[in-house]
Design a protein around this nucleic acid. Sequence first.
DNA 1: CCTCATTCCTGCGGGC
DNA 2: TGCCCGCAGGAATGAG
Length: 286
Amino acid sequence: MPELPEVETVRQGLARWVTGRQIGAVEVRHPRAIRRHLPGAAHFADVLAGRTVRDARRRGKYLWLPLDSGDALVGHLGMSGQLLVQPVGAPDELHLRIRFRFTDDGPELRFVDQRTFGGVAVSTGGAELPREIAHIARDPMDPEFSDAGFVAALRRRRTEVKRALLDQTLISGVGNIYADEALWRAGLHGVRPTDALTAPAAQRLLGHVRDVLGEAITAGGTSFDALYVNVNGESGYFERALNVYGREGEPCRRCGTPIRREAFMNRSSYSCPRCQPRPRTAAPRG
DNA sequence: CCTCATTCCTGCGGGC
DNA sequence: TGCCCGCAGGAATGAG
């Protein structure tokens, strides 16, 4: 599942392989992939044809390509989206949704997405920070991210700490996997109330979030292929560096206690029962 | 404004 | 063997 590190790997690939190139024919093969582009598929292709890609940027899990028109091609990979750079004529992927050709007849860009939670759109809301992304908080790898602001905002919330980490309007880029990993590093259970965290504890948690994201970006970079702009979350980093996510019943790498899995928002949370005890003050449920 | 449940989607694997 | 169902999960949306 693409979270910030995977999206950053994609961004780096786009910056290298797409920046400076002029878009040609655009083929929308599945309307759901452009459902956020309200004027529809024909308009989408029309406004992109002839435009030159100026850059590849990211905030949290969102990507955008500023164009020479002043607009931007905005995208989100959702659960299963990929942006691939493929030679013209390479066999279509089973779940190919959009094909972007370039006027130089070089490798084409493909949006491939099995579960179609992802999508792209042309934003006329500015190339610097498209309005479709403006409601998302800065991510912790952003040089202008405010640690003090985050700590204060987190402690003002009246919710559980894992829910807060997943709230993209508070801090962006963190998904279920890296939230669990950061909480394990911090020794905090995800249901801890945010308003009971001390400022130093919140700052330590933020440090762990930043650490785990940074390490994953580094690992993602090592698996980057020269041709494929790869969302390759399952390789490398995932297999060797995850401490809790997906490790139910396996020993905690810190204390040996079997990792537990708990239901959380129609999905799962993984934690160490000993390193991350449930808070005694947690509100009773049920 | 804030918090939270619901909904979108498809491949996979377990159970029977 | 084959069917059914649960699960994976980011974020928009609307309810309260």
